[in-house]
Amino acid sequence: MKVTIKEWNAVAAWRWDMPDDDVCGICRNPYDSTCSKCKFPGDECPLLLGECNHSFHMHCIFSWLKQESSQEKCPMCRQPFKSKSQDATAAGAEEPTQAPDSSPI
């Protein structure tokens, strides 16, 4: 007997591939959920990994950095926050609007 598979409908669950804590340090929601403003996770509410290896919902860290009092530091380790991914994706034309890399350290 020979089995020929014609079609396969599979189901898969995605997760952010995060090494450490599984909640965003700012909104306390799991990474796999959304920031408190978004409805849909994933593409619409991505994560941002800092050079300090702390990561947050992008929307969360942006609003944090916008605040004067934040002094553009990572809320977890108080180091100046810089997106780690930025270097790797520098080729991309689009910068996040309030990208923290406007003040690189």
């Binding site: 089995v3 409908n9 189901v11 669950a13 997760r15 952010w16």
Partner: peptide
Amino acid sequence: KGMRKLRWMNALGSGSITLSF
């Protein structure tokens, strides 16, 4: 999708096959 990985849930889903005897 960057930084996102998949976990396959094999008990779910469906398949179509042809068996040749």
